[in-house]
């Protein structure tokens, strides 16, 4: 099998559209991780199903992918729609099936080797922040999730959520304001943020 991992998405899409299933398999392997993360963070349960269904639908829709927007957000939009449909089918908001890594030292202090106390505080803070995001209204939660937890750009977020870019901007700033004043976060954010939200 030749190594096509460095081929552009566009090349792979073109080959897949012409019936080259192996090219599509490369796209699946390339984007399965972010697709999975998107489905889990936007929908919670049934992420595996949503991802599988999304890749099948995306293949069927390749003819309509014109390449004027990047493939990744185009695909993630299909994933997000699938995930949302599943989440809605459950008719309730289940707890996110995620784990917060205690040892991840991406802490804001930037100093080496946090003490166990510092670890405990940052773990608590992350739990509180995730809880506050989950408590946001759906439209705000989705924008924050795309922008910060999936680390998509503003344009990608707009594509994934099928929103105008201006709407992404305004929702995001409203959502951040809500988070700043969230009671659950009182004391967990550095003071200048908690106080001036």
């Amino acid at each position: 099998m030749d190594d096509v991992d460095d081929l552009d998405d566009d090349v792979l899409v073109r080959r897949a559209r012409d019936g080259d299933v192996q090219a599509y398999e490369r796209l699946i392997r390339r984007y399965a991780p972010i697709a999975h993360r998107t489905a889990v963070l936007l929908a919670g349960a049934d992420a595996d199903d949503a991802v599988q269904e999304a890749f099948v639908k995306a293949y069927a829709a390749l003819d309509r992918y014109r390449g004027d927007a990047p493939f990744r957000p185009w695909l993630l939009r299909i994933v997000a729609n699938e995930a949302r449909n599943r989440r809605r089918a459950e008719r309730r908001r289940a707890a996110l099936p995620v784990r917060l890594e205690a040892n991840e030292t991406a802490s804001s202090s930037g100093v080496a080797a946090p003490s166990p106390e510092e670890e405990a505080i940052s773990a608590e803070r992350r739990t509180a922040l995730l809880g506050a995001i989950q408590a946001l209204p759906e439209r705000d939660r989705r924008v924050v999730t795309c922008r910060y937890l999936l680390e998509l750009s503003e344009i990608e977020t707009a594509t994934v959520l099928a929103l105008p870019r201006g709407t992404v901007k305004s929702r995001l700033s409203r959502a951040l304001a809500r988070l700043r004043s969230a009671p659950a976060l009182a004391g967990y954010l550095p003071e200048e943020v908690a106080d001036r939200g």
């Binding site: 398999e25 699946i28 392997r29 399965a32 991780p33 999975h36 993360r37 889990v40 963070l41 992420a47 595996d48 991802v51 599988q52 890749f55 099936p97 995620v98 784990r99 917060l100 890594e101 991840e104 991406a106 802490s107 804001s108 940052s122 803070r125 992350r126 922040l129 995730l130 924050v144 910060y148 937890l149 999936l150 680390e151 951040l176 988070l179 700043r180 954010l189 550095p190 200048e192 943020v193």
Partner: peptide, 22 residues
């Protein structure tokens, strides 16, 4: 600081093993 905290949270979230859907 909030945005920094969100980035920190993103790095800490583990959404579990990626299933091989291919």
């Amino acid at each position: 600081a909030l945005e920094q905290a969100l980035r920190d949270l993103s790095a800490a979230i583990d959404t579990g093993p990626v299933p091989d859907v291919a």
